[in-house]
Computed example of a mutant assay.
Amino acid sequence: MLLHKAGIPFEVYERATEIEPLGASMYFNSTTANFFKFGAGGYILARPQLHALLLRQVPHERVHMGKKVLSIESGDHEVMVRFNDGTEAEGDILVRADGAYSAVFQNLYEKLKRNDKLPPSDAFSFPITHPLTPEEFPDLALHDCQFRKYIDTSIVYAIKDFPIISGGDKILTFQDLMDRTPKIQMTKVMLEEKVFRTWYDCRTVLIGDACHKFNPQGGVGATNAMHDAIVLANLINGLPFHPVAEEIEAAFKAYQDERFQWVLDAFNSSKVHRTMMGQRIQEKTCSYRPQVAFLPLIKNTGRVHPAQQPSLSVQASVKNEEKSAAQSV
């Protein structure tokens, strides 16, 4: 959306053949609501509606579905992506927004590892258990998948029997929600938490879950992915036409420098959010309200002042050249 509004050519390549209406709702708080002109008070939107809203802002011919990435080659002059259908795509910059398990992710990190440029912390993979047996875990032998949460030392619930608050007198369980949910809207969320130290290399840059994965509680992951997009779009907009690799990496570094500490703070606060959200943490989080440098700025409201945003001062190189020419005249 932002690249389109900035007049920067782009193409979107998606592995899925169609976008499924997964997910429940998304809460836009003061750090993202203004971006969508929902108002600083916050707004709740169903995720399928959000997907439709976002797609309407992008020309449909720019979005290519069913494109699985097989390999990537990045050099001083361009980055090339090869897909499973035999097609190729070339460009100045590759923005990776496909999580931590894609071919793009593996390609980038394997290259950095071979060149001894990958920090040890990033080489650590997410924890996956060894094969489990029914003898060790009897629940595996049961027909129904079991999800148990201990409320106290005397009660154990299977997920379908877990009580939920309906606001009425009738006692409902999670099974009632499952019975009322179309199967196409059911999905699994892997509980993974990690902030990577490596966000870019040469002409490839990572955003969202590709460089930081949060506890899903509170929607912190989606919020920070939007913040990534805003800051990165500001800096890409400031690059010259057909930038060289050094200029691109400088912009990527500025992007990570601006976002990294905020991501770490959000990562830590997302852990706190599991149990409670303190007023001090909430105020600091709400102070980060990044805006788009090349769009009309949203008036800041509320008693918490916005935090400094370096990328807000970045102007498109064409505008900078025009300004310099006008001053010289």
Rank of each mutant, 00 (worst) to 15 (best):
M226Q: 05
V263P: 00
M80L: 12
K67Q: 00
S328N: 13
A245F: 09
S313D: 11
I44M: 10
V12D: 07
A254V: 06
R259T: 05
I155C: 10
Q315E: 14
E61K: 07
E20N: 09
E14L: 06
H242D: 14
T198D: 07
M277A: 09
I184D: 11
Q327P: 03
A33S: 15
P21F: 01
M26T: 13
R82N: 10
L70R: 01
F10L: 07
F35W: 12
Y109V: 13
C286N: 14
L118N: 04
P119A: 08
K323R: 10
K117I: 07
F105S: 03
E321C: 13
P163C: 01
K188Y: 01
N215L: 06
L235F: 06
S269C: 09
R56N: 03
A250K: 00
Y43P: 03
F162W: 10
P134C: 08
T301H: 04
Y27H: 14
T17C: 07
N115V: 06
G75I: 00
D116K: 11
S313I: 11
V58H: 02
S154P: 08
H77K: 15
P9H: 02
P306D: 12
Q279L: 15
P131Y: 00
P296R: 02
Q291A: 09
Y150S: 15
H242S: 13
G86K: 03
G91F: 00
Q309R: 02
R180T: 06
E247V: 00
P306N: 12
S71N: 13
V272G: 10
K37V: 05
G218V: 05
V304G: 02
I298C: 09
E193C: 08
N215V: 02
I151E: 14
L177Q: 08
L22A: 08
A325H: 13
L3R: 09
N234I: 02
D144S: 10
Q49T: 15
K68H: 11
T129H: 13
A254W: 06
M1S: 01
V195Q: 01
E247G: 07
K284S: 10
V244R: 15
Y288R: 08
P48M: 05
I165D: 14
T285N: 10
F83I: 01
I93N: 04
D152C: 08
L142I: 02
Y13N: 04
R82M: 03
S125D: 14
F36L: 13
V304P: 01
P290V: 06
T204E: 00
D116P: 02
G278M: 12
I72K: 01
L191D: 08
G7V: 05
I236E: 07
G39S: 11
V304R: 01
R180I: 01
R82V: 02
K194R: 15
F214D: 08
V69N: 00
D161P: 03
E322M: 14
T301Y: 06
A293Y: 04
M1K: 00
